[in-house]
C-alpha cells in the first residue's frame, strides 16, 4: 500500500478536501474568537444548517448550484438573529456563560433540524455539478471533491486580499489588535464585528452546502466537525487567517493520514498534535496579539 503512488495521491487530495472544509468553518470561528472574544460552540451547527437548507433548496428547485448561494444567505440570516437575540447580550458575560449558552444552542438547533428534516441521512442526487471522476497523476478522483478544494483556496485568496489589501481589512485587523484604540480612530468596532460575524456564518453555511453532495447530511453532523474546527483555531492562533489555513491543512492531513495509516490511533493523533502545539507555542502558530 505504502509503495503505491496512487494511494498517496488520493490521500493527499482527501487531506486537501477535508482541510478546505475545515478552513471554511474555522476561519469564521477564529475571527469571531479574535475579534469578539466570543466562544461560539454553535458554529458547527451553522455548518449543519447550511447542509440541511442546501438540501431543501436543491430538492425544491432541482438546482444544486442555487443551494451554494441560497444556503449561505439563509445561514447568515439565522446568524444575524442569533447575534441580536443572544450573542450581543452575552458579549460581556464571560467565557463560561458563553460556552454554556452556545453549547445548549447546539442541542436546540439539532432538535429543530430533526423536527424539520427528520433523522435520516439526506443526500442530493442528480444535477450535481462536476459529477464524475477526473484523472489526476494517473489516479481517478471525484471531480466534485476537487471543486471543494478549489472553493476553499479561492475563499482563502479572496479573504487574504480583503483583509490585507483593503481599508476595511485594516479596520478588522486593528479591531483584533486593540478594539479600544480602534474605536478612538473613529472605527465603529461593533458594526465591523457584526459584519465579520455574518461573513463567518455565511462561510459555515457554504461549507455545509458544498459538503452535502459529497457526503450525506444528518442533524448531528455539526457536532462531529466542531472538535477538529476548534483544534484548528487553537493550533493556528486566535483571530489569524494564516493560522486558520495552516491549522486546517495540518489537522486535515493529520486526520486523513492518521485514519489511513494508523487507524487504531486516528482518534488521538489530532489531540497529540494539539497538546504538542499547546506545550511549544501556547498562543498558537500564528498569534495575532503579540
Amino acid at each position: 500500500m505504502l509503495t503505491d503512488g496512487g494511494f498517496w495521491i488520493v490521500q493527499i487530495l482527501n487531506s486537501l478536501q477535508l482541510s478546505m472544509l475545515l478552513f471554511l468553518l474555522s476561519v469564521g470561528l477564529t475571527v469571531i474568537f479574535g475579534l469578539l472574544n466570543f466562544v461560539n460552540l454553535a458554529h458547527g451547527s451553522l455548518y449543519m444548517l447550511g447542509a440541511m437548507i442546501g438540501y431543501s433548496i436543491a430538492t425544491a428547485t432541482g438546482s444544486v448550484w442555487l443551494s451554494f448561494f441560497g444556503a449561505p444567505v439563509a445561514v447568515m440570516i439565522i446568524g444575524a438573529v442569533l447575534y441580536k437575540l443572544l450573542i450581543e447580550r452575552m458579549r460581556t458575560a464571560g467565557p463560561m456563560n458563553q460556552v454554556l449558552v452556545t453549547f445548549g444552542l447546539i442541542f436546540v438547533l439539532m432538535d429543530i433540524a430533526r423536527y424539520i428534516w427528520g433523522t435520516d441521512q439526506l443526500g442530493v442526487t442528480g444535477n450535481i455539478p462536476f459529477y464524475g471522476t477526473i484523472e489526476v497523476f494517473g489516479q481517478f478522483y471525484p471531480s466534485y471533491r476537487l471543486f471543494i478544494i478549489a472553493v476553499g483556496l479561492i475563499t482563502y485568496a479572496v479573504l487574504y486580499v480583503l483583509l490585507e489589501r483593503t481599508r476595511l481589512g485594516s479596520e478588522v485587523r486593528a479591531g483584533v489588535d486593540d478594539g479600544e484604540t480602534a474605536s478612538c480612530m473613529g472605527i465603529n468596532v461593533e458594526a465591523t464585528f457584526f459584519g465579520v460575524f455574518l461573513l463567518g456564518c455565511a462561510l459555515a453555511g457554504l461549507a455545509g452546502a458544498i459538503a452535502l453532495p459529497a457526503f450525506s447530511a444528518t442533524p448531528d453532523m455539526g457536532v462531529g466537525i466542531l472538535v477538529p474546527t476548534l483544534v484548528v483555531v487553537v493550533v493556528g492562533g486566535l483571530g489569524s487567517l494564516k493560522g486558520a489555513i495552516v491549522g486546517s491543512l495540518l489537522i486535515g492531513t493529520t486526520l486523513t493520514f492518521g485514519t489511513a495509516l494508523i487507524p487504531n490511533f486516528a482518534g488521538i493523533i489530532m489531540y497529540a498534535l494539539l497538546v504538542a502545539v499547546l506545550l511549544l507555542k501556547p498562543e498558537g502558530l500564528y498569534p495575532v496579539r503579540a
Binding site: 485587523r173 484604540t181 478612538c184 461593533e190
Partner: peptide, 27 residues
Amino acid sequence: RPHEIARTGIAYLPETRGIFPSLSVTE
C-alpha cells in the same frame, strides 16, 4: 460611544501609543 466621539473631531493618543502591530506604518 468612542467612535462617535472620535468622529466629532477629538483625537486621543493613549499612553500605550496604540500602534496596531498587524498594520504597517502606512496602514
